[in-house]
Design a protein around this nucleic acid. Structure first.
Length: 293
DNA sequence: ATCCTATCCTGTAGGC
DNA sequence: TGCCTACAGGATAGGA
């Protein structure tokens, strides 16, 4: 039986949405007294420089675009991506103990604090002028949010029209649909009873209908449970998410399918694990064609 | 254009 | 017990 060597937390739309709500609930309306950036560097285009310019500004609201968070401070926006291991942590008062991998600290005027921690440094953090937010390359690449308004089967079919990539990789493509990650892609396809290796451009209309129904169902159920926690994922109040117990296939290779008992299989697509039930999710298109003969 | 691959990084599990 | 290694995958750049 395969057990992944690590128990990663992978912030996808439901986890990011949970973080968004928590930050709004606890830090909204607070004024930044001090904004500090640690020496530890984040990766890629993620400069946390400019953080000091948030001083004296008030956190007005927090938005989400795909897996990105936008913390709005007047005419400045703090753009944040959690990457693989990023966390926003909220404290009513400054913690006395030191924590590793803290890249940014916002100290509010009332003594509460909001920290960004990211051990693996895949996360992003940058201050952008409000006028430049919509010109940000990362945000410009994003496709539409799958929940707002809900994706329709017709839209999905149009997005996939002519695509030769697998439906699993298709669901992960943030340029088409922004927010679905590796865990929920497998879960969505299981519940829609579609084989992950099916070519996206060849998925049938009834299958798109099932996928279109399961995308909001799975994501909303996960949001309701504050996301999925494997080990270290926590909300900004340090609570675990509860969707993990609902997982049907993810990280369950070799274990019996909760629907039919067939052992769950793990394959690799695009250098990422995919989990599926070979019985419930039928066959890849290629195999199905030959079976018809 | 579209798809694919390598790369970044560190905590953790599993083997010995 | 403790050391060692393999593995997990977000976005992105560059190549086919």
């Amino acid at each position: 039986m395969h057990r992944s060597g690590t128990v990663p937390r992978m912030p996808e739309l439901p986890e990011v949405e949970t973080v968004r709500r928590m930050i709004e609930a606890h830090a909204r309306g607070r004024r930044v007294a001090e904004a500090r950036r640690s020496r530890s560097r984040l990766h890629v285009s993620s400069r946390s420089s400019g953080l000091a310019s948030l001083r004296g500004r008030t956190l007005e609201r927090v938005e989400r675009r795909g897996k990105y968070l936008l913390l709005r401070f007047g005419d400045l926006t703090l753009l944040s991506h959690l990457g693989m291991s990023g966390r926003w942590l909220f404290f009513d008062e400054a913690p006395s103990r030191l924590m590793p991998h803290v890249h940014a600290r916002l100290e509010f005027a009332d003594g509460s604090e909001l920290w960004f921690q990211d051990p693996r440094r895949f996360g992003q953090l940058r201050v952008v002028a409000r006028a430049d937010v919509d010109r940000d390359a990362s945000l410009q690449r994003l496709g539409r949010d799958p929940l707002d308004p809900p994706l329709t089967a017709r839209e999905l079919a149009e997005l996939a029209n002519g695509s030769r990539t697998s439906v699993k990789v298709f669901l992960l493509d943030q340029a088409r649909i922004a927010g679905i990650g590796n865990i929920y892609a497998s879960e969505i396809l299981f519940r829609a009873r579609v084989h992950p290796r099916r070519r996206a451009g060849a998925v049938a209309a009834d299958e798109w209908r099932r996928i279109a129904a399961e995308i909001p169902a799975v994501l909303q159920e996960a949001i309701d449970r504050m996301g999925t926690t494997f080990s270290t994922y926590r909300t900004p109040l340090n609570e675990p998410g509860a969707y993990g117990e609902r997982l049907m296939v993810y990280d369950r290779a070799g274990e019996p399918c909760r629907r039919c008992g067939t052992p769950i299989r793990r394959v690799v697509q695009g250098q990422r694990s995919t989990f599926f039930c070979p019985s419930c999710q039928g066959k890849a298109l290629k195999q199905r064609r030959s079976a018809r003969r």
